[in-house]
Write a protein that binds this DNA or RNA. Structure first.
Length: 492
RNA sequence: GGCGCCAUAGCCAAGUGGUAAGGCAAAGGUCUGCAAAACCUUCAUUCCCCGGUUCGAAUCCGGGUGGCGCCUCCA
């Protein structure tokens, strides 16, 4: 077996601010670490966008034949968790554990694949304490009244990821009164326990890890001291990722991650989503109103590094597009199901669309560019189904089969079209029926009346029924197989 | 103040040196009893503005203007 040529995937590296060819440390194998959620609440649609983006990255790397180890952690020890637990009266560990389960449900609902490893901070105290000890031993960290701090001045290339100047950073840094730190920029690796807080024993007394050290410890455990891709959203560049680099490279004396990928922000029609404004949209609330794949499609339609604006209109557009895709697939499946069209030539080079899709995705996971190829693919499916340009029916059938097969491949990468088309369409109609308060029995009765009128060639009566239904938001379609109906697009 | 990002048709959105993908909307057409869906056609001599580099720039450089993010927890 010949050596497989590595796929020419290029990705934008925040460290160098350039697109680079992906060259894994171990050829053919890619280690990916994505900073996962702090489990103190429900995730919002911004979090969902980030995790969906990396879900697609990992799916694509695998599609391209790379062996991926995908690690996404749970931060289950944290100030915010302690605070939230205080409010609900739960034990912090219990609250965190509850939201880990909730996160898993949400991720599944959005068709995200499980990471290979989903480590929790609370399960990795020995590893965390070990790396802190290593930093203390090497002189990069110091203990202070039960806390341990990383000494930023000991790290000569601190801030290389965010490209900041230390003297400038000091200006904005708040220095707490009675601070235990030597320098304002130093950050906590270990925090001494306060009464009532979860605490673990350590060489510095009871306490808990600081925010950043967990990722250094857990990534090293599961991916090694140097690994390939480290991801997260833009806001993690500073200080979180910067501090991870400082810790890991100081402790291990080698490069931490080769490629840094950062996902752009999602806003609400230009407004920042924030708790103080009270406009945080939870993923699960969004999924009450919009189909999961439509939401994924909405995310995927814009490049992962670009800002994305969430709105009802954008969602409605995405859902309408998904309906087009699924209607097409339903027709195609009906046409080719269980049929054998033999072997032979295909019409119109159907595989060119998949090739186009791949070349877009190879270029920094440009899923938005890939949509163009997808449109071409579906367009050809419709053309072949409804108005075949060639008479050779077996050839048309074979071509449709080939196209359907390519849709399945794209589906595996994007996490779209994973449903049975008819089931998806019916589910969407049922949701619309509920939302619009449509009386299905009445619709069926009116349709019966209309069918009778049409049979009697009383088209005026038939058109009156059509108009009546239209007022109720129901659109009807006459086909060879009879009349079907759907809920018209919402007018607002 | 520092470090960055963004600005492409009515809207969404690719394209980062070689002469503007795709989608939605709109208009016309095919099909239809009429529709819907689908398909076909049309729809940016031009990419926020002003300079510069180049045979050639939406793409590179300089300067503006307008949005935004991070610098404190944040996906």
């Amino acid at each position: 077996m010949a050596q497989v040529t590595p796929p020419p995937i290029r990705l934008f590296n925040t460290m160098t601010m350039q697109k680079e060819l992906l060259e894994p440390a171990v050829p053919g194998c890619v280690g990916v670490y994505v900073c996962g959620p702090t489990v103190y609440s429900y995730i919002h649609i911004g979090n969902a966008r980030t995790f969906t983006s990396f879900d697609v990255v990992v799916r694509y790397l695998r599609y391209r034949g790379l062996k991926v180890r995908y690690v996404r952690n749970f931060t289950d020890v944290d100030d915010k968790i302690i605070k939230a637990a205080h409010e609900t009266g739960e034990a912090p560990v219990a609250l965190a554990s509850r939201f880990v389960d909730i996160f898993r449900e949400d991720a599944k609902a959005l068709h995200m694949q499980e990471p290979d490893v989903a480590p929790k901070v609370s399960d990795h105290l020995p590893e965390i304490i070990a790396i802190i000890q290593k930093l203390v031993d090497k002189g990069f960290a110091y203990a202070s009244h039960g806390d341990v701090y990383f000494s930023v001045s000991a790290d000569k290339d601190y801030a290389k990821l965010s490209k900041r100047h230390l003297d400038e950073l000091c200006v904005g840094e708040r220095v707490q009164p009675g601070d235990l730190k030597r320098e304002p920029l130093d950050f906590a690796l270990w925090k001494a326990a306060k009464p009532g807080e979860p605490a673990w024993e350590s060489p510095w007394g009871p306490g808990r890890p600081g925010w950043h050290i967990e990722c250094s410890a857990m990534s090293a455990k599961y991916l090694g001291e140097t690994f390939d891709i480290h991801g997260g959203a833009l806001d993690l560049i500073f200080p979180h990722h910067e501090n991870e680099i400082a810790q890991s490279e100081s402790a291990n004396g080698q490069e931490f991650a080769k490629y840094w990928m950062h996902c752009g922000f999602l806003d609400l029609e230009g407004a920042k989503m924030s708790k103080s404004l009270g406009n945080v949209v939870r993923l699960r609330d969004a999924l009450e109103k919009v189909d999961a794949e439509a939401l994924r499609f909405f995310f995927i339609s814009t490049h992962y590094r670009h800002p994305l604006s969430f709105s009802d209109k954008a969602l409605a557009d995405a859902e309408a597009r998904m309906e087009y895709f699924y209607e097409t697939l339903r027709k195609v499946d009906e046409r080719i199901a269980g049929k054998d069209f033999g072997t032979g030539a295909l019409h119109g080079e159907p595989h060119r669309f998949l090739a186009e899709f791949e070349s877009s995705m190879d270029d920094d996971f440009n899923s938005a560019g890939g949509m163009s190829a997808l449109s071409g693919l579906f367009n050809l499916m419709n053309e072949l189904t409804d108005k075949p340009p060639v008479k050779d029916k077996p050839m048309v059938g074979r071509t449709l089969q080939a196209l359907r097969e390519d849709v399945r491949k794209v589906s595996g990468v994007l996490g779209l079209f994973e449903d049975d088309p008819s089931a998806w369409l019916l589910r969407r109609r049922e949701r619309a029926v509920r939302e619009r308060g449509i009386d299905v029995a009445e619709v069926e009765r009116l349709l019966g009346e209309r069918t009778a009128a049409r049979a009697a060639k009383d088209f005026a009566a038939a058109d009156r029924v059509r108009a009546t239904l239209k007022e109720k938001g129901v659109e009807i379609m006459d086909t060879v197989g009879g009349t079907s109906w759907k809920v018209a697009a919402a007018q607002g």
